[in-house]
């Protein structure tokens, strides 16, 4: 441990609200990147299936595979990752590992059979692969939020809204990816994509607002501290600059432009939206502070 890290740890331990630094700082940022990539992969698979965009399915697979690699890079002992299958019964990380494995096998199989143009008995296999991919998609879209909700040590994350929020992020990320793919391929899958983006964005804002409101009104002091850190503390720049300005204001302004939406504009909307999602996830993760331990009753009983 470097002297700087050691000093930081000691300072954190002395503070009333000890921030968690293992997820979101240093090598821990890989976990946020991994969650972001896997969430977008799940959303892109769903949206591409709905709009029948084959390139989108391939992009979802690549994003999922990248997300898996980044997850592995985050682990202290990546070579033992296969052991994560063991505790499926209670651990959301274990469920996420299984879900991501199913997604990669299923989506990879689907794409391979489609790419090679195999028919006959292979179609049954393709159907099975589609089923695996569908089950995997549902799990990877949902598991991240539950991972945070299961973190009892961080009151701000320990909220029932977190899974809903992460599911909404996944869909928003999927639409954003489809916008970029549409701009790159020149094939616009449908008229309603931007309207759908707006609808999901409203939902994300609503969930996020409710989560902050819940933490401030019903949460304990640590949860309130996290909200303070996001809105007016150490993470304010990340939140206002990355999430609100880049992730919300820029896309909305681009959509509101009087001229027709060009391919470049669509790509910019998608990229800005995805960047906003990454920054809001990063802010939320970094805002996590542990429950303070110094509450001692003054008398017995």
């Amino acid at each position: 441990m470097s002297s700087q890290r050691y000093d930081q740890l000691i300072a954190d331990m002395r503070s009333d609200y000890r921030p968690q630094r293992e997820w979101g700082e240093g090598k821990g940022i890989l976990l946020v990147v991994g969650h972001f990539l896997v969430g977008v992969a799940g959303g892109t698979w769903v949206m591409s299936s709905l709009y029948h965009v084959t390139v989108g399915l391939a992009v979802a697979f690549v994003l999922g595979a990248l997300g898996a690699l980044v997850h592995l890079a985050f682990l202290g002992k990546p070579m033992r990752a296969f052991k994560m299958i063991r505790h499926f019964r209670t651990s959301w990380i274990s469920r996420g590992f299984v879900g991501l494995s199913l997604f990669l096998v299923g989506s990879g199989g689907c794409l391979a059979i489609g790419f090679l143009g195999l028919g006959g008995p292979w179609l049954v296999l393709a159907l099975c692969a589609q089923g695996l991919a569908a089950v995997g998609t549902v799990i990877i879209i949902g598991y991240m939020g539950f991972c945070y909700t299961a973190s009892k040590g961080i009151p701000f994350w320990h909220s029932p809204l977190h899974p809903a929020l992460y599911i909404a992020y996944a869909f928003r990320g999927g639409i954003a990816a489809l916008l970029v793919i549409s701009a790159a391929t020149g094939v616009v899958p449908g008229d309603g994509l931007l309207q759908l983006w707006l609808g999901i964005t409203v939902l994300v804002c609503l969930f996020f607002g409710l989560e902050l409101y819940g933490a401030v009104t019903g949460g304990n002091q640590a949860a309130r501290r996290s909200v303070h850190d996001i809105l007016a503390g150490r993470l304010a720049l990340l939140f206002y600059g990355g999430t609100l300005a880049l992730g919300l204001l820029v896309p909305v302004l681009l959509i509101a432009l009087p001229s027709a939406i060009s391919a470049t504009t669509m790509a910019l909307i998608g990229l800005a939206s995805a960047a906003g999602d990454f920054f809001v996830k990063l802010s939320t993760v970094r805002a996590g502070v542990y429950l303070p331990l110094r509450r001692i009753p003054q008398t017995a009983g």
Binding site: G76, S91, I93, Y148, G153, L291
Partner: peptide, 24 residues
């Protein structure tokens, strides 16, 4: 068996777990 995912550190309400990142 530990893979170093650090989920236990986030789950502990008493923050009494430590990640030993490197030998020092």
């Amino acid at each position: 068996k530990c893979v170093g995912c650090r989920a236990c550190m986030m789950a502990c309400p008493y923050n009494n777990r430590y990640f030993n990142a490197e030998r020092n």
